[in-house]
Amino acid sequence: MDYPFRPVVQNWPALVDGLFVTLQIAAASLVLSLLLGLVLVGVRMLFPTVGRWLVTGYVEVIRNVPPLVLLYFIFFALPHAGLVLDPFTSGVLGLTIYHAAFVAEVLRAGVEAVGSSQLEAARSLGLNAAQALRYVVLPQAAVVVLPPLGNLAISLTKTTSLVAIISVSDITYQSQILVSDTFRPFELFAAAGAVYLCLSLGIGQITRAAEKRLTAYRFVRA
């Protein structure tokens, strides 16, 4: 008996396996790109000339080259230089290198938005450097940085679908395999698309909730 979405219903374990791979790769590259972005901003601030030059170069190059070219380079070209990585590692590496550039830009904007006078004011009020950072600078920077970082997380989750091309068995890959088995492209790709949509909406909700919490002080009554 045939019915709509039968290939989805019958093959749900494969799709769920793919979902877990997608989640793993998204989480790994999100954490790593946040760290790498943080390092980039740190280098930029600690070494005002050389660091700024290097980080700006990195950001401009990465932002203006398609992510797929980067993935191809890591997966197909690096083995010729003697560096063989498995598909999953290549995918995480490519996504990390790509999104760290965007993270660095967002964090830089956040730091610039707060400005140094806030730190100076906090220090002159007798807070030590760590306290000033913890209670004055970071809360303000977090509010600026959070919404664009949320968008970045959504974009990263969607970009993970490209790792299917280098044969990581994520949900896109699984649905492609099932399409070639069952010839039912619409239902399977719609199911995969719905999963990505739910992930995006979920990340959006989390970001909004965090934003609400971070800005709660604005609505506190005396």
Binding site: I154, K158, T159, T160, S161, L162, A164, I165, T172, Q176, V179, P185, F189, A192, G193, Y196, L197, C198, L199, S200, L201
Partner: peptide, 9 residues
Amino acid sequence: GVPVYLFML
């Protein structure tokens, strides 16, 4: 909310 690669496929 959906990747462009899926649209293409």
